[in-house]
Computed example of a mutant assay.
Amino acid sequence: MTETPNPNIVDADTITGEMHPIRRVVLSLGSNLGSRTDNLQGAVNSLADTPDVWVTAVSPVYETQPVDAPPGSGPFLNAVVLADTTLSARTLLDRCLAVEDAFGRERVEANGPRTLDVDLIVVGDRRSATDELTLPHPKAAERAFVLKPWFDLEPDAELLDAGPISELLAKIGVDGLTLKEDIELTLQ
């Protein structure tokens, strides 16, 4: 995964300027409250409508049991979106949070049920370890509901600092994932 086709382009995250690098982004979507399919499709549409974000692919949808969630939490629908962007990681995170809020996301308890979850998994080869943003996503290598949909789109992809997603997926398996063949998220 390269940050930009031209390594000589100035990084606008650190230097103000007109040139912005193009980064490949992997986003994970999840919903276990409300109209789960509509929530996921709405997230895809909202991301595609974001200036300087070009959604290039959307994975199949999987139903999964909640991980580390409170008792009684319902199953999730999960998908992965691939996009290219010139936005900074922080600006993209702000957009993801705004999309979640637009779909009624309430942040009451950690890992609690939610109408929509939009997580940044990787943003180019960016690394971040702040309270607001950790890149790559710290739990992505352990989550089949992230790795399997991503693998469906890019079987040769690698998770920064963790290795090929095919190997990570082989280690953790796909138990608990059910492909929802009757649900297809579309690009506008």
Rank of each mutant, 00 (worst) to 15 (best):
D49V: 05
V81G: 06
L133N: 04
D131P: 14
D175I: 01
A102S: 15
N45E: 14
V108R: 15
P51L: 14
T130A: 00
L179W: 10
P75N: 11
A89Q: 11
A110Q: 13
L179N: 06
E181G: 14
P75W: 01
V81Q: 05
V118W: 07
W150E: 01
K148A: 15
T50M: 12
R126V: 02
W54I: 15
D152H: 13
L87Q: 06
V80K: 02
L116H: 10
G74M: 14
P138E: 04
A98L: 09
D125A: 13
L93P: 08
E142G: 06
G104E: 02
E109T: 15
V174S: 09
P71M: 05
A110F: 05
N45A: 15
L153W: 11
L135T: 00
D125F: 02
L177D: 06
E154W: 09
S166V: 10
A129C: 15
G104N: 04
A57Y: 08
R126G: 00
L87M: 13
P51M: 09
P66C: 09
H137L: 00
V80M: 07
R95D: 07
G112W: 09
E158I: 10
L153K: 08
L168I: 05
V53I: 13
D152N: 15
L135R: 00
T86I: 07
R95L: 01
A129D: 14
G176L: 08
R126I: 03
L177E: 06
R90Y: 11
W150A: 01
R114A: 13
R107F: 12
P164L: 14
F151M: 05
D131W: 07
R143F: 10
A57E: 12
N45D: 15
P136E: 00
A170C: 04
S46Q: 11
T85R: 06
L93D: 13
K148N: 01
D161W: 07
E109Q: 15
Q65C: 10
Y62V: 08
T56R: 06
T64Q: 09
A98F: 01
S88K: 11
K180W: 03
R90E: 11
V67L: 14
V123C: 15
D175R: 10
I121T: 04
L168V: 07
G72I: 12
R95V: 15
K171R: 15
P51F: 09
E167M: 00
V118D: 07
G72H: 13
P164R: 15
V55S: 03
P51E: 14
R105Y: 03
D117R: 03
F103W: 03
D117E: 09
W54L: 15
S73R: 08
S88F: 00
Q65W: 11
N78P: 05
F76D: 09
A170I: 03
T91V: 13
K139L: 11
A89E: 10
P138R: 09
T115Y: 07
P60W: 02
G173C: 07
S88Y: 01
L82T: 08
L92G: 08
L133I: 06
R127I: 11
V67A: 08
A157H: 07
A69K: 13
G104L: 05
L47E: 10
P155W: 08
G124N: 06
S128I: 00
L177I: 08
P75E: 06
H137S: 02
